[in-house]
Amino acid sequence: MRGLIQRVRGARVEVAGEVLGAIDQGLLVLVGVEPDDDPARADKLLHKLLNYRVFGDDQGRMNLSLSDVGGGLLLVSQFTLAADTRSGMRPSFSSAAPPERAEALFAHLLEQARARHAPVACGRFGADMQVHLVNDGPVTFLLET
């Protein structure tokens, strides 16, 4: 499972002009699910999301986690993160989990996130979404489990 995290000052996700989820300071996470992923990997990713130290302390060093700062978590499913781009000029999606499996694992991740942290927001699985963000830094990391 992959999570492309972006530290943001604010972010929101819309579908057809309707805001589905929004956060202030926190993490926007684009989530890609691969065929071998399971609930344990989703739980491991969530642990990293909540505890990865990407926020500045009093000295400006990245020593604080999302849990430490009480920031928002915006989860957005993005199957293109699981694409194989190693060869050719067109991505292959054979390395992405089938939609039904990916949706179930994304739902698990979201459910667990809501049980362990607040605020948590999300987009709509499989929808054509528009994601708006103010990247803070910019600070972006790819987390993999």
Rank of each mutant, 00 (worst) to 15 (best):
R124Q: 14
A11Y: 02
E144R: 04
D84H: 00
D128F: 09
G137V: 12
G32S: 05
P91R: 11
Q112P: 02
E100N: 11
R53T: 12
R2T: 15
V15E: 01
G72M: 03
R114A: 04
V131H: 09
A104R: 07
V31D: 00
E34H: 15
G70F: 03
R7T: 08
V54N: 15
G126S: 07
A113Y: 08
H47M: 04
V139P: 11
Y52N: 10
M89Y: 06
A127F: 00
P98N: 13
G21S: 00
G137R: 15
L81Q: 13
L110H: 07
L109V: 01
T80E: 03
L110R: 08
R124E: 15
A115W: 04
F55P: 09
I23F: 07
R124C: 12
E100D: 14
D58E: 15
E111R: 01
P99W: 10
E34A: 14
A118D: 10
L27F: 07
R101Q: 14
G10W: 05
L133I: 07
S95W: 00
A22D: 07
C122T: 10
T85N: 05
A22I: 09
K44I: 06
L142W: 15
S94Y: 02
R53W: 11
D57R: 04
G21A: 00
D58M: 13
D38N: 05
L50D: 12
V8R: 06
P138C: 09
G60P: 02
D68G: 02
D136H: 14
R90I: 02
H108E: 12
P138G: 08
D36I: 05
M62I: 13
S77N: 00
V69M: 04
R124A: 15
D24E: 12
G17M: 06
L46A: 08
E144W: 08
M129A: 14
G10P: 07
V76Y: 06
A96F: 05
G56E: 14
D58W: 13
L49W: 12
Q25I: 00
L45P: 12
L28M: 11
G26N: 10
A11P: 01
M129I: 12
L27E: 05
M1Q: 05
N63W: 12
A107C: 03
R2E: 15
R9T: 14
G71E: 11
S87A: 09
L133C: 05
T80I: 05
V13S: 00
P98D: 14
V8C: 03
L73W: 05
D136V: 06
A118G: 09
R61S: 15
V69C: 04
D36K: 02
P99V: 10
N135Q: 08
D43K: 01
V139I: 06
G21Y: 01
E111G: 00
A104S: 07
